[in-house]
Structures are given as structure tokens and as C-alpha cells.
Design a protein around this nucleic acid. Structure first.
Length: 219
DNA sequence: TGCATGATGTTCT
DNA sequence: GAACATCATGCAC
């Protein structure tokens, strides 16, 4: 059987990312992020993201200036910043703003809408469906993202990673925000954005700040 | 359904 | 040597 993929298709333009990460982050909800390679294609509809601002953000990897690890954050917008954490997981960000301004958006969770078989095969323990890409480490596993993809351009045709506009864009009323997950500094700033009521949003962990999960608005 | 804990290694103090 | 943008498991309820 011949399979025609909707993705890779239209890509978000680089100008989309040439803005502060706090503006880009909510606009990424509902967009389709995909990886394509020899193993096949996996596409995820983004349901949860977090904005990290530049060197002024105490929770950002750029807070202490440029290093070898975070170099991609200082480059042009529309590229993937991939890092390794906790000794076993990768996380992927999309870089925002012009070179020299190190802001980015962490892709935290989404629904696998294509390539579920491949995504399941990549995930240990045979997790399926809801848990395929629910959390930043899981999302990278499902898409087969590791540090070899650090710096990949998501705005260029032919890249191993890409991102496309929403099939149906969520409205402002569908978006919630709250504190970021798993950080100790600047834990009170509501820079985590998610789709209200979406079951593919990751479970909220630490940071007992006010208002959590399908509750607090402020979109 | 929820909390506590161990795995594991890179980066920076 | 400590901290870390995490996850899966195990056991309590």
C-alpha cells in the first residue's frame, strides 16, 4: 500500500521563531513536530511547551553565558537545541530570536498522530498511545532524537526535523499557562503553556506554586 | 492514583 | 563533588 504523509509538508517560516520565546511558545501548541529518517516518520501534535528566555532567565541554560553545550541557543532561530540530562534522557528545544539572543522553547509533550508503530518500538516497556510522547524525555524517544540532531534546522526542507502549522489552530480559550516543571530557579514564572483538557499533557510534578493542571488560566 | 526512589552521565562550581 | 528543563518501577492507599 502506498502511504501519503501529510508531513513533511508546509513548514513554519523562520520568521515565526524570530520573536521572544514567550510569544512563540503558545503559538506552537497544536503545531505538528516531526522527525523523518531511514527508520521512518513520526509526527507529534504539540500539547505542552515551556518558554526559556535568554541570559536573564535564571532557569535557562544560557543564564551563565555561552558554553559548548548551549552554543546552538546563540545561533539563528528555527534550529533545534538538543541536550542530554539526568544521565539518560534527551530534551529538544526550538531556538527563538536572532543570533546572540539565547532564548528557546522546550517541547514537553504531544500526541503521536503518525508513525505510532515506530514510536512504540523506540519506547522501552511497550508503552503506547497516551504515554508515547507525554513528557520531554519520552517525546525525544518517540521521535528518535539524540544529540546528533543538535543544531538541526526545522525550517529547511530536507531536514531530519521539521515543524508544520496546526491542522486546526487552538484558540486563546484553549490555552492554559502555569509554572515550569522540574526547575528550582524562577519557579514562580508562568512560562509553561498547554492545551486545556488535552490528555497528552504531561503530569505536573514539583513546584507547589498556586494553580495546577486543567485549572489555572491566564492565557 | 500518588509518592518515594534508583538509574545514569554531563556540565559547571 | 553537586546539581540537573527526567522516567520507570514499586508499594501504599
Amino acid at each position: 500500500l502506498l502511504t501519503v504523509h501529510p508531513w513533511p509538508g508546509d513548514l513554519l517560516p523562520r520568521a515565526f521563531f524570530d520573536r521572544p520565546s514567550t510569544q512563540v511558545a503558545p503559538d506552537l501548541l497544536g503545531c505538528v513536530f516531526w522527525s523523518d529518517g531511514p527508520a521512518g516518520l513520526v509526527a507529534v501534535r504539540l500539547a505542552e511547551v515551556e518558554a526559556y528566555e535568554g541570559e536573564a532567565d535564571p532557569a535557562s541554560h544560557a543564564f551563565r553565558g555561552r558554553t559548548q553545550r548551549n552554543a546552538v541557543m546563540y545561533g539563528p532561530p528555527g534550529h533545534a537545541y538538543v541536550y542530554f540530562t539526568y544521565g539518560m534522557h534527551y530534551c529538544v528545544n526550538l531556538v527563538c530570536q536572532p543570533p546572540g539572543q539565547a532564548s528557546a522553547v522546550l517541547l514537553r509533550a504531544g500526541q503521536v498522530i503518525e508513525g505510532a508503530d515506530l514510536a512504540t518500538a523506540r519506547r522501552p516497556g511497550g508503552h503506547r498511545d497516551r504515554n508515547l510522547a507525554r513528557g520531554p524525555g519520552r517525546l525525544c524517544q518517540a521521535l528518535g532524537i539524540d544529540r546528533a540532531l543538535d543544531g538541526a534546522d526545522v525550517c529547511s526542507p530536507g531536514s531530519a526535523l521539521g515543524i508544520s502549522p496546526p491542522v486546526s489552530a487552538p484558540g486563546p480559550a484553549d490555552i492554559r499557562s502555569g509554572p515550569r516543571v522540574g526547575i528550582s530557579r524562577a519557579a514562580d514564572v508562568p512560562l509553561r503553556f498547554w492545551l486545556a483538557g488535552d490528555s497528552y499533557v504531561s503530569a505536573y510534578k514539583r513546584n507547589g506554586a498556586a494553580g495546577e493542571e486543567p485549572g489555572t488560566a491566564r492565557a
